[in-house]
Amino acid sequence: MQRVNMIMAESPGLITICLLGYLLSAECTVFLDHENANKILNRPKRYNSGKLEEFVQGNLERECMEEKCSFEEAREVFENTERTTEFWKQYVDGDQCESNPCLNGGSCKDDINSYECWCPFGFEGKNCELDVTCNIKNGRCEQFCKNSADNKVVCSCTEGYRLAENQKSCEPAVPFPCGRVSVSQTSKLTRAETVFPDVDYVNSTEAETILDNITQSTQSFNDFTRVVGGEDAKPGQFPWQVVLNGKVDAFCGGSIVNEKWIVTAAHCVETGVKITVVAGEHNIEETEHTEQKRNVIRIIPHHNYNAAINKYNHDIALLELDEPLVLNSYVTPICIADKEYTNIFLKFGSGYVSGWGRVFHKGRSALVLQYLRVPLVDRATCLRSTKFTIYNNMFCAGFHEGGRDSCQGDSGGPHVTEVEGTSFLTGIISWGEECAMKGKYGIYTKVSRYVNWIKEKTKLT
């Protein structure tokens, strides 16, 4: 034993070699072989497995989906700052455009905790909710729209109204504003409101030439003092309507412009014939205590009207009353817009006519005020429907199939267009061939041609 100890002390290297040989010859039971080890760690190889990531292109799944990435790591994937920024906006807080917040056709661009709407022409605001041009839906104005110097929408209202708090709607500024039905039992019968379409306001006024200088022999019209197929109006439903009495009662109609003036057809009036105007009328054979009678003290036909040349060209006249009318729910003026808007309103496509005229061709006159909704007829169809001249200051309205029309005794009465609950004068009943005849239409004086003249002559002093 002493000898062994001496050998170990003198030859430590020998001992180490012996131990190493023993270990190498022993069977290893701690580690699995290569094949079995792979069965336990069965993990798919990654895209760049075996390579240094710093030297390969980034992978979106590896960089940002398996674990949260930084902007720089995302930049490695896209290799483009702009594309990385677009991805980053949604990656950080989701897609803010998912709810489609942009209105009126706006395009949404996502941002971090926010979004941006790219608005089409005519709109602005956070969600493109603000109209900035009158060309689109009248700028959301209830009545009139004008573009300011910086191309912003400025709404306005006709006389007797003021802008509401929203700067879009119009509200009454006087007790009985024009064009409004205020009798409670008839307010439910107000005709369907007309909503502004998209309009090209630059070209809204037709490029028409008034044929002022045409000389033409007097034409022989049949029954051209021209509501057939209409309905009984309720008291106060058309408070701007008046009836004219002269040699015979209810020979023509008219509309209240203001307390002192009536507008009617020029062919209705004769110099030297006494005319009485009755406002607030409903049943011409009954006294309903809503009527107001006034005498006409002055007749002003349009300066281009000449019955000797043509009885229905420039067929418009103004009547001055001896005493002002007292405005109330049964006696209310009709609204008159400017030339541009009167023309736009007419193009809405349908209007209402009213009167006490004959209820059928050569038949009896109506006792109760009649009204009828009539569609506008395109000019080409209008011209083809008659052998008589249709001037540019006239328009056609009615039904091709016949059966409904204005008729004798309705002449001078109103053709009105309702705009968001307020009625505007767009025409004056003038003439036609018979009444409600198939293929024939009622012919009306186009008020847009005469609004400046009306307003100039009827100013209240």
Score class of each variant (00 low, 15 high):
Q2N: 15
N5S: 14
M8H: 13
E10T: 08
I15C: 11
L19F: 13
Y22W: 15
C28G: 14
T29N: 13
D33N: 08
E35N: 13
A37F: 02
K39E: 11
K45V: 04
Y47A: 14
N48T: 02
E53T: 00
F55Y: 09
V56I: 12
Q57M: 06
L60M: 06
E61Y: 03
M65P: 01
F71W: 10
E73M: 00
E76I: 02
V77K: 00
V77W: 06
F78L: 12
E82A: 11
T84A: 13
F87Y: 07
Y91V: 05
C97R: 03
C102P: 02
K109L: 07
D110V: 07
C117P: 02
C119E: 02
G122I: 03
T133E: 11
C134E: 03
K137P: 07
N138Y: 07
C141W: 00
F144Y: 09
F144C: 01
K146Q: 13
S148H: 09
D150L: 11
K152T: 12
C155S: 00
E159T: 10
G160L: 01
G160W: 02
Y161L: 03
E165H: 09
N166M: 02
Q167H: 13
Q167S: 14
F176W: 07
P177I: 01
P177K: 01
R180I: 04
V181T: 14
V181C: 06
V183T: 10
S184C: 06
K188D: 07
L189H: 13
T190Y: 09
A192G: 12
V195Y: 13
V195D: 15
P197Y: 12
V199T: 15
Y201P: 10
V202I: 14
N213M: 09
N213H: 07
N213R: 08
S220L: 13
D223V: 08
T225F: 07
R226W: 07
R226F: 07
V228Y: 10
D232V: 06
D232F: 09
D232S: 11
D249P: 09
A250V: 10
G253V: 14
V257Q: 00
T264D: 00
H267G: 05
V273H: 15
K274N: 15
K274L: 06
I275K: 01
T276S: 11
V277D: 00
V277N: 00
G280T: 02
N283T: 11
E285F: 11
E286V: 08
R294W: 00
N295H: 12
I297Q: 07
I297D: 04
R298N: 15
I299H: 07
H303Y: 12
Y305M: 02
Y305D: 01
N306D: 09
A307Y: 08
L321W: 00
E323K: 12
L325A: 00
L325I: 03
S329T: 12
Y330V: 05
P333H: 02
C335E: 00
A337G: 06
D338F: 03
K339Q: 15
K339S: 15
T342E: 04
K347V: 03
G349R: 06
G351C: 04
G351V: 01
Y352N: 06
V353D: 01
R358D: 09
R364W: 05
P375Y: 11
R379T: 15
A380Q: 10
T381D: 12
L383A: 15
M394G: 04
C396Y: 01
G398W: 04
F399E: 12
E401R: 13
G402C: 06
R404S: 15
G409A: 11
D410Q: 15
H415S: 01
V416L: 05
E420T: 09
F424M: 01
L425P: 00
I429T: 13
E433H: 13
E433I: 05
E433F: 09
E433A: 14
C435M: 03
G439P: 06
Y441L: 10
I443K: 04
Y444N: 02
R449T: 15
Y450R: 01
V451W: 03
N452Y: 07
I454Y: 00
L460G: 06
